[in-house]
Simulated assay, not measured.
Amino acid sequence: MTVDELREYGLLPMDDEEISGFLSSQRTGVLGLLAEDVPYLLPLSYGYDGEERLYFTYLVGSRSQKAELSEATDTARFLVYKVDTMYNWESVLLTGRLDPVPETEWDGLEELLNDIWRPSVLQSGALSGDVTIYEFRIDEQTGIKHQGLPPRLESTRE
């Protein structure tokens, strides 16, 4: 079913301003990269520039599948979602390009990346591992939300 077909149940598309506000208020999502047989899905924290770019910090070792796949892919997808209840949730799907950021440009991203959430094990690992920053340039974005009871159930409460 399409979003239009689900409107009667309370599902609504998000406009660009709502998508930007949602991305600004969240800090984690799932990155999908092209792999040989199945998609490679990776939960990641991100920084958002408020316009058209997300930034990810990768902790990489001597061999990193996420770094290898990121370098090899032309187009990636990133899903950000928040679920409060079955009648109150939002999700944004982004499609774009993923490129490493040269280390000479990292200082300009420091403030943007300071507030991202990282599991403590990754924070500890970052002290001894190699870190790479990737930029995800948003080419396409779609968002949907469901906030409150479906209209037909809402009318039965009155």
Rank of each mutant, 00 (worst) to 15 (best):
Thr95Met: 10
Val121Arg: 11
Glu36Gln: 11
Glu105Pro: 09
Val80Thr: 00
Lys66Asp: 01
Thr85Asn: 08
Glu103His: 04
Asn88Lys: 14
Pro100Asp: 11
Asp37Gly: 15
Ser120Asp: 15
Glu52Tyr: 04
Arg53Cys: 13
Tyr81Lys: 03
Ser62His: 14
Asn88Gly: 11
Thr57Arg: 13
Leu44Arg: 00
Asp37Lys: 15
Tyr48Trp: 11
Tyr48Ser: 03
Lys82Trp: 10
Asp84Thr: 12
Ile116Asn: 08
Gln123Asp: 15
Glu110Lys: 14
Thr104Phe: 00
Glu90Lys: 15
Gln65Glu: 12
Leu31Asp: 00
Thr57Trp: 02
Asn88Cys: 12
Pro39Tyr: 04
Arg63Phe: 14
Lys82Thr: 09
Tyr58Arg: 00
Val121Thr: 08
Leu98Phe: 02
Tyr46Thr: 06
Gln123Tyr: 05
Tyr87Lys: 03
Glu111Thr: 10
Ser120Tyr: 09
Val101Trp: 03
Trp117Ser: 10
Thr75Phe: 07
Tyr46Phe: 14
Glu71Met: 14
Asp107Tyr: 04
Asn88Tyr: 10
Ile116Cys: 08
Asp74Pro: 08
Leu94Val: 04
Arg97Asp: 06
Pro119Ile: 05
Asp84Lys: 12
Leu79Val: 13
Arg97Pro: 04
Met86Cys: 10
Thr85Trp: 09
Gly108Asp: 07
Leu113Arg: 01
Arg118Pro: 04
Asp37Thr: 13
Thr73Glu: 13
Trp89Phe: 15
Gln123His: 05
Pro43Gln: 07
Glu68Ile: 13
Ser120Val: 11
Glu110His: 05
Leu109Ser: 02
Leu33Val: 04
Gly47Asn: 01
Leu109Met: 02
Val92Thr: 05
Leu98Met: 06
Glu105Ser: 14
Leu59Lys: 03
Leu109Pro: 01
Ser62Val: 12
Tyr40Pro: 11
Ala35Phe: 05
Leu41Cys: 07
Gln123Glu: 15
Asp115Val: 10
Thr85Val: 10
Gly61Thr: 03
Asp49His: 06
Gly61Phe: 02
Glu52Ile: 03
Leu94Asp: 00
Val83Pro: 01
Val83Arg: 08
Leu98His: 02
Leu44Gln: 01
Leu33Trp: 01
Asp37Arg: 15
Ser70Gln: 06
Val80Glu: 00
Asp37Met: 11
Trp117Ile: 09
Phe56His: 03
Tyr48Leu: 06
Gln65Cys: 00
Arg97Lys: 11
Glu71Asp: 14
Asp115Ser: 14
Tyr46Pro: 08
Leu112Ile: 13
Ala67Phe: 10
Ile116Gly: 04
Val38Tyr: 12
Ser62Trp: 11
Gln65Asp: 05
Pro43Ile: 03
Leu34Thr: 13
Glu71His: 11
Leu79Trp: 00
Glu111Ile: 00
Gly61Ala: 12
Leu34Asn: 14
Leu41Ile: 10
Thr85Tyr: 07
Gly47Ala: 05
Arg118Lys: 14
Ser91Glu: 05
Glu51Arg: 13
Gly108Thr: 02
Leu79Arg: 01
Asp84Leu: 13
Leu94Pro: 01
Ile116Gln: 10
Leu112Ala: 09
Thr104Met: 06
Gln65Ser: 07
Leu109Tyr: 00
Pro43Trp: 01
Asp49Gln: 06
Ser91Cys: 07
